[in-house]
């Protein structure tokens, strides 16, 4: 028995030492990312007056540095393509934990998918994995049941097979990340084989997900508690505007929050030259939309 325990102990010690060598992969992982916004957030480097949050429609359609120029407020964009409202909530909590709280948050909404299930809108675990060296991130992944509690002890349990992929990851040439965190699409990269959709799509109220609504309510509650002005924002799609989501949001929104919708009468939002694809503007469209948003911010100071 004693021999057995000693051998197990010795093996465990050797393994423990080996495990610590793998820290190098945790250390390297953030450097392989081209998008450092989440890491900046964790390091308390995003101390701005206005923060833009949302999914791809926030990242590609809203140019933070333009807002800065047009409103005089310092601004930064921490929108992530393909992210859902639960992830936005996590970003908000992270922002408030490690940085100075902003005065205004612009939350770009996904019309009509904000509360619906869509495969392409998810919690962006993949953005968190490269930052596993931060205990805060690891704890969040454990809370989400994405990592086991072993990761509190072992470096290896914080790694995954992508940790051994040493290629640069994250940003494409067609939407490079700007210093302000925005990622507008270049004009050249756009598709040209899509048409304006003038059919109104039915909004399936019954299919709304409770978890998404809960996260949304918590998001606005946190903003209220921290005295942050919250602006909900709806960017154009290359289709006729459907106001159902706007009404759904207004029903549950706190009265002090503001709601901004693009100018649905502006003919330019029906021109393909302003769009990258059916759901996203290109840089020309983004500039137009951002200037509208800036005016709205100036009016609601």
């Amino acid at each position: 028995m004693k021999r057995f325990l000693l051998r197990v102990l010795l093996f465990s010690l050797v393994f423990f030492a080996l495990d610590k060598l793998f820290y190098i992969f945790l250390f390297i992982a953030p450097k392989l990312e081209e998008d450092h916004r989440l890491e900046l957030l964790l390091n308390g480097k995003i101390n701005k007056e206005l923060i833009v949050m949302g999914s791809s429609r926030g990242a590609y359609n809203i140019i933070a540095e333009q807002i800065e120029k047009e409103t005089g407020k310092t601004a930064y964009n921490i929108s992530y393509a393909g992210s859902n409202v639960q992830f936005h909530l996590f970003l908000l909590k992270t922002l408030l934990k490690f940085n100075n709280k902003p005065k205004t948050i612009v939350l770009s909404l996904d019309n009509p998918y904000e509360f619906l299930y869509v495969k392409t809108f998810d919690y962006r675990y993949d953005k968190m994995y490269p930052l596993e060296k931060y205990n805060y991130i690891n704890d969040e992944l454990i809370r989400l049941d994405d990592k086991s509690k072993f990761s509190k002890i072992f470096c290896l349990a914080r790694l995954n097979r992508n940790s051994f992929n040493f290629r640069k990851k994250g940003v494409t040439k067609e939407s490079p990340i700007l210093e302000c965190g925005s990622m507008p699409f270049s004009i050249e990269s756009g598709k040209n084989n899509f048409k304006f959709d003038d059919k109104k799509v039915r909004y399936p109220v019954k299919e709304e997900l409770k978890d998404k609504k809960k996260a949304f309510l918590e998001f606005q509650k946190i903003c209220k508690e921290n005295n942050i002005k919250l602006i909900y924002c709806l960017a154009p799609n290359f289709r006729v505007y459907n106001s159902t989501l706007e009404h759904r949001i207004k029903d549950i929104s706190l009265p002090e929050n503001r709601f901004f919708v693009y100018d649905t009468t502006d003919f330019r939002y029906k021109k393909i030259e302003y769009f990258h694809d059916e759901s996203h503007l290109n840089i020309r469209g983004a500039k137009l939309f951002t200037s509208e948003l800036s005016k709205f911010i100036n009016l609601n100071k």
Binding site: F15, L18, D145, K147, S148, F150, L156, A157, R161, F164
Partner: peptide, 19 residues
Amino acid sequence: RWSMYMIIIVFVFIFGARE
């Protein structure tokens, strides 16, 4: 043998995530 065990454990950690 120990090397084999270590490799297996490394695989278990790296390829395992959620319980």
